[in-house]
Design a protein around this nucleic acid. Structure first.
Ligand code: MN
Ligand code: MN
Ligand code: ZN
Ligand code: ZN
Lengths: 138, 138
DNA sequence: ACATAATTTATAACCATTCTAAACTAGAAG
DNA sequence: CTTCTAGTTTAGAATGGTTATAAATTATGT
């Protein structure tokens, strides 16, 4: 409960006041050794488990969106009824298990180069993301 | 207004009764020379424009889901607040313009082979989809 | 024509997300 | 330290896409 200095500094540097809610969310998101994927619902549960004071749902949404805008989180393109977020903000790709609703990273080093032999006049590429749908086999 | 025979046959072959609602939706979806992408909202507007009798929203959802289950439509994985569907059911990929919310096909012949050098024990690959986000440049 | 299961429909329910506007707070200034 | 103010949090309402419900309608086999 306090190498918060790092997070306070990060928040301040981003023009975000280091409130106790934001610091708690930073701890949950950015303390773990490994990056991870989450839905807002899952995040709410994690926060409830790891934090004593309650954070309102609106604040969680606000904070996640603020962090996304600052580039501290990525939103992942999955056909789903809810958004998924990723604390891994590097360019990378995903396996997605539709039954388990589980996301697994594929790092750029684990995938061959992707050649797109089609251009659209007046449009430029912002990102290229590969989604590999998998199923658990019996 | 009647090479419906084709659609009636198709529906019957799928175990779906050829109601006038389903036939109308078939006409809208499968008559065009080119495949296309649509959201349910867009489809509702197209149906209103091209059809005289009204089709309830519930029926449109029901039918689209039935057609998807039969493999006549694909649902496209886009991070968005609504589902997109595709009358192109072949394996292929997409450009996505987030501002215009516009999808453009990338056929398999227009993209190099995708090599995934990572396996997950107990899981097998069902599909590999590439989403290329683009922006209109000024 | 009749019977029956499938289908359609209006409407309510659901649920993730966003909005609102009032209460609270961090940080700056005096 | 006190005051001021913009930024933040919050509960609750609103939104919007989608799904569920259950009654009316229809397709189809007999
Ligand atoms: Mn879906
Ligand atoms: Mn979104
Ligand atoms: Zn990831
Ligand atoms: Zn397509």
């Amino acid at each position: 409960m306090s190498n918060n200095l790092e997070f306070i500094t990060k928040l301040r540097a981003s023009g975000l006041r280091p409130t106790k809610q934001r610091i708690s969310i930073c701890e949950v998101l950015f303390s773990p050794a490994e990056t991870f994927h989450f839905s807002i619902n899952e995040l709410v549960k994690i926060i409830e488990r790891k934090t004593n004071h309650k954070i309102s749902l609106a604040t969680i949404y606000n904070t996640i969106h603020a962090f996304k805008k600052k580039g501290y989180l990525k939103e992942i393109a999955i056909n789903s009824d809810q958004s998924y977020f990723d604390t891994n903000t590097t360019d990378h790709h995903h396996f997605y298990d539709e039954q388990k609703k589980e996301l697994i990273d594929i790092h750029n080093s684990e995938i061959g180069p992707i050649k797109i032999n089609k251009t659209i006049p007046g449009k430029k590429i912002k990102s290229v993301e590969v989604l590999v749908k998998v199923e658990t086999d019996y």
